[in-house]
Each structure stands twice: as C-alpha cells, then as structure tokens.
Design a protein around this nucleic acid. Structure first.
Length: 423
DNA sequence: TCTGGGGTCCTCAAACTC
DNA sequence: TCTGGAGTTTGAGGACCC
C-alpha cells in the first residue's frame, strides 16, 4: 500500500492559507480520497483496545511483508512493503496481525457506497482510495472543499475510519494533495497555484517515477518536479523513452488529461504464490500450477471474463524473475486449459533450479458472453467448462474446499505456501 | 535486510502479414 | 515468384502502482 510519504510528497510545506481546507477551490472538481492506514483502521474497529499502540498488518509467514502500519508503528520506521522480520526488529512491541481481506473488502465497499451517494463518477484505485469527480454535484452539495469535508465526516461517523482528501483540478494533483493532507486532513490546491505546489516536490512524487527513474533523473541533475519541467522533452526522451518523457513533462507542468473513469475494465487476472521455502520438486510445482490455474479460472468465471493469453511467472531462489506466455486459439476460463498451458510453458524452461514464486495469469480478457468462445471440434458439447461451473455453484453453496481436483487431495490440510500436496 | 500479491503500462525484438 | 518495407501481433522483461 503505497510508497513512503518521504519519497512521495517530500517534506510537506504545510501552509493552511495556501493549500489548506479554506484555499480557493474554484475549478477543483477532482477529489482523491485516501483512507489512513486502512487495514489497521479496520482492525482497530473490532479491537479498540489496540488504539494508540503500534499495530502492523502483514503476512504471517517467514516471507511476509507489511501491508499497513499504524502511525504509532511508523514512528519506529515501519513502512508498507517492508519485510515483517525487519518491521519486528524496528518495533518489537508492535502488535502484528494477519491480513483479513474479506473484512477490508467489505469496509471498502461501504466507503465506496458513501462516495457514490455523492457522485456516480467514482473510480476506485484500490481497496483504500478512490478518485471522485464532483463537478456535477456542486449544485446539490456545495463547493468541492465542502463536499470533501462532508465525505470525511460521513466516513468517520459511519465507518469509524479517518481519511484524507486532496482537492484539485486534476487527478494527479489531487492525489499528491491527499498525501500532503495525511493523516486525517484535507488539502486544496487552487487551480492557479498548481505549479507553485508541484515544482518544489521531489521527482519521485511524479506518477511513474520509481526508484530506477529517480536514479536516471538524478544522474541528469534533476531533483525536483520543477527541474523536470524546465528540462527539454528531448533530453528526457533520451533518458527515459518517449512515452515516459512526454508523460512526466506534462505532469510537471500540471497537465493531466485523464478523467475519472467509473468503469475501468480488467485487462488480466492472475494468482501467484511465494513458497515459504524454495522448491525444486517438479511434482510440487505441477500441483501448485494446477492450484493457481484453478484459482485464476474461478476468478475469471466469477468476473464473467475469458482470456486468450496464458502466462506464467517464475521467480528463482536468487530473485531473478522470468515470464512466459502463450496465446491460445480461442479464449478460455477453464482450469484444465489454463493449467495445461502453464505446465507446458514451465516444462519448456527445462529448469531444475530452486523456485521461490510461481504465478499464473490470463490476459487479453473479454466478457464471457461476448460470443468469442469456440469449442474445439473434438470437444464435447458439455465439457469441462460446464463441469467447472457446476463446481463453482457447489463451492458457492457449501464453501471453499469441498471440491478440488483429485491430484490436489491430500491427507493433510493443504498448505500451498509449503508446497501443494505434501503427503 | 531481504524483498507479497494484485495489477497496468511501456519498450524492444522477433515473427508475421500485407 | 521473389523481395523489401511497413505495419501489426506476440512474447519477454522491466518499472511502477497500491
């Protein structure tokens, strides 16, 4: 969940007069709402006795990372995406909780529902943040800053979660503004003061600049967004490529043509797993790929989508990561077909190396009812697809785990992270 | 220190098509 | 029929986002 505040927004030069809640919000129809330490906040609702204490939500296994940290834990240097082992070292007193995505998803739906009562133009970015275009809601609900305040108070009152809101004329600036407002605050960037807001910020605050690009820009002597703005696009292009150069130069001048899109379509669906300990046994790998294919296929069917390209991702013990993919004759959402392709892609690698992570992904998605699915000539009218749909229905009714491929049935309860199917 | 899992988008090269 | 070039598709890899 997000990069650290230092990297993202730099030291926030808080000036309530200029970028505070009372700044001029004329023409600032875009809101970016970001929940504060969302996963932790959801946990604290049901465990209020933990309030005020350092709390970390993260993977419990030996290779888990921090998903969310309370502000008390952040004081010790704990950050999201940090290995849990390091987080525990930095803050031994922290209470560490395993993630409960079902609870976070439910809380997220409730919050998004509040947003949709304000405007239909809501674009969720993840479970804990969303863009809202409130341009059309102003006659009904008042100025953008007033709408932002309304949202903040409703989320706090109805969900017992604080959030921060950025109010601006573009999505990019609204996002930076919400970062500056954290925690539990609001920032307004007046349309005529965007450059004043943007240019002192570090280059890493630009959307699309991560560690690598920041390093490249640093070698050019570019430290702030203002530096990027004043650099000829041709120079940026030579360093970063055409698309990135033009994109960053535009953002640096406050130009962001994107509009809030309430119906973004999924382009791929996939599942991956990191083993607790590296695995070289091909039988374990085969079973893991079958399980990953099954999960992916189930998610595809649940989403009503099919895809034509099947890909695998393999991360070796030394963290080298490769991917392989193959485009099929027609789209699929069938476990057997996805697994068969994934296994063929894997065996074609001819590797015996120890593996840390395996992933299966299906790309090139189309709605399943788009009529693009073509059964093969030799495929029976009612085949695996129908069988798997029946399994979906049974799982829906009787719960996860009641049905699974015979090759995944083990005497022990399955634990994919230890390698599927040790018997 | 030792790096999750879900994704998107871009670049580049090779293969393919016209 | 062969060939070169342009455009498109595919596949791999990497950077980045939350």
């Amino acid at each position: 969940m997000g990069r650290s505040q230092e990297l993202r927004g730099g030291p926030p030069p808080k000036d309530p007069e200029v970028f505070g809640p009372n700044a001029d919000d004329t023409g600032c129809g875009i809101l970016h709402v970001d929940m504060d330490a969302f996963f932790v906040s959801v946990e604290l609702r049901r465990r209020p006795e933990l309030r005020g204490r350092p709390v970390i939500v993260g993977g419990a296994g030996p290779r888990g990372v921090v998903s969310s940290a309370s502000y008390e834990a952040r004081r010790y240097g704990v950050r999201s995406a940090m290995p849990m082992s390091k987080a525990r070292r930095l803050c031994p007193k922290a209470i560490c909780l395993p993630p409960d995505f079902a609870a976070y998803t439910e809380a997220s739906h409730a919050v998004m529902e509040i947003f949709r009562e304000v405007t239909p133009l809501v674009e969720p970015l993840s479970l804990d943040e969303a863009f809202l275009d409130v341009t059309g809601a102003q006659r009904r609900l008042g100025r953008p800053a007033a709408i932002a305040a309304l949202i903040r108070s409703r989320v706090a009152a109805e969900q017992q979660i604080t959030c921060s809101v950025g109010v601006a004329s573009t999505m990019f600036v609204a996002k930076l503004a919400s970062t500056r407002a954290k925690p539990d605050g609001m920032a307004v960037v007046p349309a005529d003061r965007v450059l004043e807001f943007l240019h002192p910020l570090p280059v890493a605050a630009l959307w699309g600049v991560g560690e690598r690009s920041a390093e490249v820009l640093g070698r050019l002597g570019l430290r702030t967004i203002g530096d990027v703005a004043r650099t000829p696009v041709a120079t940026l292009r030579a360093a970063l490529g055409k698309a990135a150069a033009e994109h960053l130069h535009d953002l640096a001048w406050g130009r962001d043509p994107r509009q809030v899109n309430p119906d973004p379509v999924d382009k791929s669906i996939g599942t991956e797993v990191t083993f607790d300990t590296d695995v070289a046994d091909h039988e374990v790998i085969r079973r893991t790929l079958l399980q990953l294919a099954g999960t992916t296929a189930t998610r595809l069917r649940r989403a009503g989508m099919m895809g034509r390209t099947v890909g695998i991702k393999v991360r070796f013990a030394d963290f080298r990561t490769i991917s392989r993919s193959r485009t099929l004759m027609s789209s699929t959402d069938v476990t057997r077909e996805i697994f068969r392709t994934a296994w063929e892609l894997f065996t074609a690698l001819g590797t015996r190396e120890r593996i840390r992570l395996l992933g299966v992904r299906v790309e090139g998605l189309l709605p399943a009812d788009a009529g693009v699915w073509q059964p093969h000539l030799w495929e029976p009218r009612y085949g695996w697809r129908e069988a798997e749909r029946a399994v979906d229905a049974a799982l829906e009714r009787f719960g996860a785990g009641v049905i699974r491929p015979a090759s995944l049935i083990t005497r022990r309860s399955p634990d994919k992270k230890r390698g599927v199917g040790h018997t």
